[in-house]
Amino acid sequence: MFEIRLHSRGGQGGVTAAKLIAYAAFLDGKYATATPLYGAERRGAPVVSFIRIDDEPIRIYSQIRNPDLVIVLDESIMQLVDVLHGIKPDGEVLINSQKGTEVEGHRTYPVDLTGISLALDLVLAGNPILNTPLIGAISKLGVISQASAKQVIAETFRDERNVEAALRAYEELKI
């Protein structure tokens, strides 16, 4: 089982992003679950979502304690939350960062999702859309296939620029 913990702030679309990643895995023929951890639901508050992907039906509902991958959609959260808590020794980290932030002891993939989104003017209610570039980046890591990533974006977003955002993130993320 591959387990992802996604850290974001309320209003950034982290909950939707988790659903879309799981949906892409579903399209890949895997079993997948996405669960938001609901706390005080308010804009700007730290939010955690969980994604599980497996070849077998998933029987676990409790929170992910030892993630294989940690996604950080807002790096300022790292000052408030220990995003690496419980991460597997070989666990990896994907950070939405304009300044190439890395974490010690874990393979880090910094990618400027916000910059990609803003460059394409992908803004919803004042916030840059991070879902679609994130899906592109995740597909680069091989968590989901490129084909499923494209299909999820095509089914969910009408605006063609979302596909472009995913492609740019795919290109930008260095493995």
């Binding site: 988790a18 659903k19 799981a22 949906y23 579903f26 079993y31 997948a32 679950t33 996405a34 669960t35 938001p36 609901y38 998933i58 509902y61």
Partner: peptide, 11 residues
């Protein structure tokens, strides 16, 4: 179960 099942996304 509220949230655990109402809000989880599954196939």
């Amino acid at each position: 179960d509220g949230f655990l099942l109402t809000h989880i996304t599954q196939t």
